[in-house]
Design a protein around this nucleic acid. Structure first.
Lengths: 172, 172
DNA sequence: CTATAATTTATGTTTAAACATTAATTTTAC
DNA sequence: GTAAAATTAATGTTTAAACATAAATTATAG
């Protein structure tokens, strides 16, 4: 579940993000009936996303890290070598994310290092430091807790859900 | 689909909203295999949420309004009477959203009005103005476009999806 | 080789989330 | 009735999204 970490809460997205400034589904149900089943999917998607995000964030808060900062750390560990700001951003898949500034916050926390690339002085090699690796290992221990967020679903139900998710975005 | 509007993008929610600083599912699939089906649900939830959010935001951008600002306008129209900042926030269901400041931005745009409540001077009556109602009517016309985001699903599939969403959060 | 284009990072701005704190007002407990 | 508690809105701070622009460097075209 570490993946959830790669959020943007939410800002945006709705954001989220807030990731979470969304009306509760119950409240919606209470309030009005839905225009159709698709509108309900939209609301349920927002609401469930925020519901999950809150739980994920609770886990990250324990280690004093934001989901975005975690995501960058995870990408750097996964790469196994220094990455440029652009490479990090591409792996985050957010077109215009504030990678520079998030990396700078990780530098302040001494979790990553920045060095100008010798072959191309435009680039900055960002590498994870020992403290960053240690933090990630600590967070790895919450994997079971993160998976448990979806414990209400059976494995079969989770599979069905994943198929439906894929179908929504199919061909887009 | 107007409901989607009530997001937080994002913020960031994840977010944001983003809400959209999340790795793409394809990229994840390409990169590693999942720990289990639950981890895949988490990633799919984030990814699909951001996918939808981008499309919704495209619609709101046409009318130069943010999802959060739209959400407050919608709540005020739905109430049919002035609401206090707290009442608005409760209907947004986000515990600590920045309702004051979002309302102030709507005041600057002359879409809503603020008046100190006569019965309780602590309260502020926020009411939607004519320009705000006109804007909402304009946005109502995008409902079909918003529903079309989920056109890849049949009605039956949308119903299954909604049941699974509800089950995830069941008893929590 | 030099001028132009492209690339990359850094920085600026607005909006907002998520926290905390303060100030004004009202409620309550004595 | 007054002091303490509670409520509400406003404001402050950090983080980040989503845009834009600038500055440094490299690549390309002539």
């Amino acid at each position: 579940m570490k993946v959830v970490c790669q959020h943007a809460i939410v800002g945006r997205l709705f954001l989220p993000c807030s990731i979470s400034n969304i009306m509760g589904l119950e409240q919606h149900i209470h309030q009005t009936n839905f225009r159709n089943e698709y509108q309900k999917v939209a609301i349920n998607l927002i609401y469930t996303y925020n519901w999950m995000y809150e739980r994920m964030k609770g886990i990250f808060d324990k280690e004093d890290i934001t989901p975005q900062q975690f995501n960058i750390l995870r990408i750097l560990r996964g790469a196994g070598k220094p990455l440029s700001t652009l490479q990090i951003r591409q792996r985050m898949l957010d077109k215009m994310s504030d990678t520079s500034r998030i990396v700078d916050r990780l530098v302040v926390k001494a979790l990553v290092q920045k060095n100008t690339c010798v072959n191309d002085k435009r680039l900055v090699d960002v590498s994870i430091m020992a403290a960053g690796k240690k933090l990630l290992e600590k967070i790895d221990k919450y994997n079971a807790e993160m998976d448990a967020i979806f414990n209400n679903l059976s494995d079969t139900e989770a599979k069905s859900l994943n198929k439906l998710f894929d179908k929504i975005r199919d061909g887009n």
